[in-house]
Simulated assay, not measured.
Amino acid sequence: MRLRILGCSGGIGGANHTTAFLLNESVLIDAGTGLQALSLQEMLDIDHVFLTHAHFDHIACLPMLIDSVIGLRRYRPLYLHASTETLAILREHVFNWRIWPDFSLLPDESIAFLRYCPHEVGETREAAACRITALPARHTVPAVGFCLDSGNSSLVYSGDTVGCADFWDAVNAIGGLSTLIIETAFPDSEQGLAHASKHLCPATLQRELAHLERSAQILITHLKPADSDLIMQEIAAAGLPVRRLLAGETIEF
């Protein structure tokens, strides 16, 4: 399996683009501004989108993706996998005819461009020959992480979360874990903001990683652009065996 990192920043500006990962050409994990790195043909090849949650930095390019590929160039639907709560938020606040058309009804409901697929914590779906399981997460809105299982090894992506016991229980039960992608959005000087917005900072990352019972490559994502270097310096000072996830890299597992 190949996971291409299109965007992994906690914000935009310059080379910074928000979260979007491409799995084996046809599966998108989150749909932030990193999605614009793809060509039109690459976007046409996407059949499934899995969302961790409905915050704008993780869905910003989803409406434009659908708009760009519908019509004469594409006849098969796009399948959107997310929790029932996340799908409800998208229906009410995005695909509502006021912000963007409701593509689950176009051209009509029987042959709609967009298909909603509820995907709850603990449930596993197969897409592009990969088993994708929704993992528990704790954020300011309903959220999940994902375990991607290639059959040879597994990669876990935390999504946006402050961590929780259920998340670590699920991660520690995964056989063949090779990679953990986990967020750290703020420096320690903004720990109060991190706590209020339910994100990690280096100090809380250190406490959370103490729950990891398996050996794995640990990659840090979702750093706020203005503080990204400082965050990584604080993580290094804590002696944590991690590195920064980079846009443009491809992870094989």
Rank of each mutant, 00 (worst) to 15 (best):
L3S: 03
R4W: 03
G13R: 07
A15N: 13
T18S: 12
A20T: 06
L22Y: 03
L22G: 11
L23C: 11
S26G: 14
D30L: 00
A31Y: 03
G32R: 01
L38D: 08
S39T: 15
M43G: 14
L44E: 03
I46E: 02
F50L: 01
T52W: 01
I59P: 14
M64F: 15
I66A: 04
D67Y: 12
G71I: 02
Y75E: 15
P77L: 02
L80Y: 10
T84E: 14
E85S: 14
H93Y: 12
F95N: 06
I99G: 00
P101T: 02
S104G: 08
L106F: 13
P107A: 00
D108W: 10
A112H: 05
A112C: 08
F113W: 13
L114Q: 10
R115F: 05
V121W: 05
T124P: 14
A128F: 00
I132Y: 04
A134Q: 01
L135E: 04
P136T: 04
P136G: 13
V144W: 07
C147G: 12
D149A: 08
D149I: 02
G151S: 04
N152D: 13
L155E: 04
V156A: 09
V156E: 01
D160M: 05
D160R: 11
T161K: 00
V162T: 13
D166I: 02
D166F: 01
F167R: 03
F167P: 14
W168E: 00
N172R: 03
I174D: 10
G175F: 07
G176E: 04
E183Q: 14
E183H: 12
T184Q: 11
F186E: 13
E190L: 15
E190V: 05
L193W: 10
S197P: 09
H199G: 13
L209M: 09
H211R: 12
E213F: 08
P225K: 07
D229Y: 06
I231G: 07
Q233W: 10
E234N: 05
E234A: 02
A238G: 11
P241F: 00
L245V: 01
A247R: 05
E249A: 04
T250D: 08
